[in-house]
Design a protein around this nucleic acid. Structure first.
Length: 585
DNA sequence: GCCGTTTTCGGCCCGACTGTTTTCAGTCG
């Protein structure tokens, strides 16, 4: 293996996500075993923390940085994580599984069933699975238990059915369509003053499990009635005086919260989350003798502020923190130290550095794409059609690109505000060689290299492959570096740490791809790359003029990854961009 | 299990809704 990051003897590679899964299961098992709720929370917090670590857990055992320096992880949890990294499992989890009724953990994942009910159902009724749960409900055996009744039985049946049909998270782009339509619908309601989307959607997570809509109104009952009457709703799941939940025909759940005007900022902060961020902020409030909740900042019973979201941060001595960063992943410390990144914005983007035309697999012509980019206010646009290896894209060969260049030159002579760059998305072969030769590659303004095949190479071979491509002097940008497609294809198995280091070292820029199913690099990788000094490119990877708007999703993802405007090459003026390319140095 | 500018012990964010209860437990976010 290249690089100098040999794992310790006895340590095999394990994904942070797998460590997190194990910690989370320990949390579930402990909760079923009536453990101290704070101990349960400690395991769940640790699971989230590990998931969002910028580097593989192994790297915390031999370097200068230690896991115990990470907030929420003490000596005990660090030891447990070490054990997982070395052995792939945990003695504790085996003991807990032995002591826990079979299937109880699965029951707990049915909405409405927590640890108490799961334990009762498995010990008293012998329910061993979600299927068995539905059977018991149909046989009306559940209502015989104390604390359960007819309605609980019915709700269990509904939830089991819903879980079987939907359950997976929805892409951010799809959720946006439902969310924005619903927001418009709620703003039509007569008594509504303000309406906003909060929750993980506002935090720009790449997928969402549900939507949170926040409104202020002068007539709460009327507003809740309007919400419940939403034409796209298939069911009203919950309905109170200040909250209601509906399910849309798509299966997406939407929570509505109705609050008074003066609480808008407090509620927006609270319902934006994340939960871990909120807990941390509320703790800071408590340390200052304040109580923070969704209604505002309180000293004793006295309301102090909460009209504006900034009030919540001000109360604990912090500047406003962008929603994308609110994961309790260091944003509070960064805010306190005055070193929050100046996150990239859509407005700061001056051009798009990846798009396709009918010359390969795009749906619009070169001229159409250029005109749409100009109309969008861009200063430049790189046309980056595919090379021949990716058959389905009908990629161009050297002669094809030379013809395209002449058309680009003619276009540039005609266009007044936009400059079109001669670009290419050249395929990286399985052995790391490129799909076009040096003589043609040197003629482009910009070369993106990316993987479209051989997704299942070994980690070592895959890493070697990418390193070889990066080492090629013609490559300016590594595009969609992990080749993942959310929900469809796992990222290629890569030593990302090594690849990102080499890319930074070589002066290769890293793309954050805005296609809703790619969003590649992801947030954690962006943050890692940023910490290594990477330069980023946010690209729409548009295959039509309409898809130029995918820039939005790429920017959102980069923001989640703490990407600073100054580090985004396509937020620079064209002259600086060209001067800074690897080939210019 | 974590954590400390009063603490190495004793705290740990806070409120709404539902269903099954006669005053509240469980669950969720």
């Amino acid at each position: 293996m290249p690089g100098n990051r040999h794992p310790r003897r006895g340590t095999r590679h394990i994904e942070n996500a797998e460590v997190a899964r194990i910690l989370r299961e320990v949390g579930d098992l402990l909760e079923l075993g009536k453990a101290n709720v704070f101990r349960v929370r400690a395991y769940r917090n640790a699971a989230r923390t590990v998931e969002e670590l910028p580097a593989a857990v192994e790297s915390y055992f031999d370097g200068e940085k230690s896991l115990t320096d990470v907030p929420g992880i003490g000596t005990d949890l660090a030891g447990k994580i070490d054990e997982i990294a070395r052995t792939g499992t945990l003695r504790l989890i085996r003991d807990l599984r032995r002591r826990t009724p079979k299937g109880a953990v699965d029951l707990m994942h049915v909405r409405g069933i927590g640890p108490r009910r799961a334990r009762l159902l498995s010990t008293r009724l012998g329910v061993r699975s979600v299927k068995g749960l539905a059977r018991a409900a149909r046989q009306q055996r559940i209502r015989q238990l104390r604390g359960f009744g007819r309605k609980t039985e019915e709700s269990i049946l509904r939830e089991v059915a819903a879980q079987a049909s939907e359950e997976q998270r929805m892409s951010r782009a799809e959720a946006a369509q439902y969310g924005e339509a619903l927001l418009a619908y709620m703003r039509e309601a007569p008594a509504v003053n303000r309406a906003e989307l909060a929750g993980s959607f506002r935090r720009c997570r790449e997928t969402v499990g549900d939507l949170d809509v926040l409104v202020t109104t002068s007539d709460a009952p009327a507003t809740i009635a309007h919400f419940a009457a939403c034409p796209d709703a298939s069911a009203v799941l919950q309905r109170g005086r200040t909250r209601a939940t509906i399910r849309l025909h798509s299966g997406l759940r939407v929570d509505l919260r109705v609050i008074p005007d003066r609480s808008f900022g407090a509620a927006l902060h609270y319902f934006t989350g994340s939960k871990a961020h909120n807990i941390a902020i509320r703790r800071m409030g408590r340390d200052r003798g304040l109580k923070l909740n969704e209604y505002g900042v309180f000293r004793g019973a006295q309301w102090i502020s909460g009209r504006d979201e900034r009030d919540m941060f001000k109360a604990v001595g912090l500047p406003w923190i962008p929603p994308e960063l609110r994961e309790n992943g260091g944003e509070i410390e960064a805010a306190a130290a005055g070193v929050l990144p100046r996150l990239i914005t859509l407005e700061a983007i001056r051009g798009d550095l990846q798009c396709h035309t009918v010359d390969s697999d795009g749906r619009d012509t070169l001229a159409d794409m250029a005109e749409a980019a100009e109309a969008a206010g861009y200063e430049y646009l790189a046309i980056t059609d595919h090379s021949p290896a990716v058959r389905v894209t009908r990629g161009l060969d050297a002669a094809g690109f030379r013809k395209q260049w002449r058309r680009i030159d003619a276009l540039n002579a005609r266009l007044r505000r936009l400059h079109v760059l001669r670009g290419v998305e050249v395929d990286i072969h399985a052995d790391g060689s490129l799909d076009l030769n040096d003589s043609i590659l040197s003629g482009f303004d910009l070369v993106l290299a990316s993987v479209h095949s051989a997704f299942s190479l070994s980690r070592a071979a895959q890493t070697q492959r990418i390193l070889r491509a990066i080492a090629h002097r013609s490559v300016d940008i590594l595009a969609h570096p992990t080749a993942r497609q959310i929900g469809r294809r796992a990222p290629i198995d890569l030593d990302l740490d090594v690849v990102l280091r080499e890319a930074v070292q070589a002066g290769v820029w890293l793309e954050v791809n805005g296609q809703p199913e790619r969003l590649d690099l992801d947030d954690a990788a962006c943050r890692l790359a940023g910490s290594l000094g990477a330069v980023f490119v946010v690209g729409s990877d548009a295959h039509s003029t309409a898809e130029l708007r995918f820039m939005r999703w790429g920017v959102d993802q980069a923001r989640r990854g703490w990407v600073d405007t100054a580090r985004v090459a396509n937020a620079w003026p064209l002259a600086r961009l060209l001067r800074s390319r690897r080939r210019a140095r």
